[in-house]
């Protein structure tokens, strides 16, 4: 099959970018989208042209590295699928396909289709961890976790941190990502110790990075390759409110004693 590709070309964050049109001729419908791009790139290299750079790693939909907006939708129009798992059989022969990088102020473009997602790493550093005491691992059965809580935490932990939620949101908001990470640890007993501090610090870092605000459109939930639910955002909103109020009470109590 043949596709016409409109691909974003940008030297670096400082220079302006533009679309270039390339033909993907005689590609197999069984190829993944990234394999098709590999073929296009090899042909460009063979012709002495510069290939397009794009992110990819595991190519089996679990690492969250691939990050392409296809025809305006991050990871393409297939539900619960990353770009690397998107196959050409879902496209029509002769179709024109627009390929763009994630677009958000907090994700500056490195080159062509690669963006810098270090903002997510800084949010994780602000609170996406649990404290573990040194010494022997505790007895596993000493920490009971109900099936419901374990399931919820697992659903949240499914987030691969690809950033499609930011890319699709009309406000470039990172709420779904941060909510998944906060909820994952806040649901579990291991994460309880830093519960309030975690949500405050991660939200504060999210705001500092220049992401937008949540307007509950549900775009993120619809596009998320791991189908993370908006319910986690509600959970984070609740945890944040509790943390704000508790933090103030604690401070005033300490002030009273001091």
């Amino acid at each position: 099959m043949n596709l016409t590709l409109k691909i974003w070309r940008q030297k670096n964050a400082a220079s302006p970018g533009c679309f270039e049109t390339h033909e993907a001729r005689d590609v197999s419908p069984d190829m993944s989208f990234l394999e098709m791009l590999d073929v296009v790139n090899e042909r460009l290299i063979a012709g002495g042209q510069e290939p397009f750079v794009f992110d990819s790693d595991c190519r089996e939909g679990i690492c969250g590295t691939c990050s392409l907006v296809i025809n305006g939708i991050p990871h393409g129009s297939r539900k619960g699928t990353t770009v690397c798992q998107l196959h050409l059989r879902y496209f029509k022969d002769g179709q024109t396909v627009t390929i763009e990088p994630w677009r958000a102020r907090a994700f500056p473009i490195v080159k062509d289709l690669i963006v810098d997602r270090a903002a997510f790493d800084r949010i994780m550093q602000a609170g996406g961890f649990v404290s573990v005491n040194t010494g022997n691992a505790p007895e596993a059965n000493a920490l009971p976790v109900s099936k419901e809580i374990a399931d919820l935490a697992m659903d949240a932990a499914a987030c691969i941190g690809c950033g499609a939620c930011v890319a699709v949101c009309k406000n470039a908001s990172a709420m779904l990502f941060v909510a998944a990470k906060v909820s994952h640890l806040n649901y579990l007993p291991q994460g309880k110790a830093e519960k309030d501090r975690r949500v405050k610090n991660m939200v504060s870092q999210m705001d500092k990075e220049g992401f937008g605000n949540c307007t509950v459109t549900g775009s993120c939930e619809a596009v998320c390759p791991k189908e993370i639910s908006l319910d986690f955002i509600a959970k984070m909103n609740r945890d944040y409110a509790v943390a704000l109020v508790k933090g103030e009470l604690k401070k005033s109590a300490a002030g009273g004693v001091g």
């Binding site: 305006g72 406000n171 908001s173 937008g212 605000n213 459109t217 549900g218 775009s219």
Partner: peptide, 29 residues
């Protein structure tokens, strides 16, 4: 909030696609 949201995406997508899977009410709020 609107001003912050606008600032969070300085460069938009090609063809300015409508907010994906968002309800009419949410887009026109």
């Amino acid at each position: 909030l609107r001003a912050e949201n606008r600032a969070a995406r300085p460069v938009g997508y090609a063809g300015d696609p409508a907010s994906f899977a968002a309800s009419y009410a949410s887009r026109t709020i």
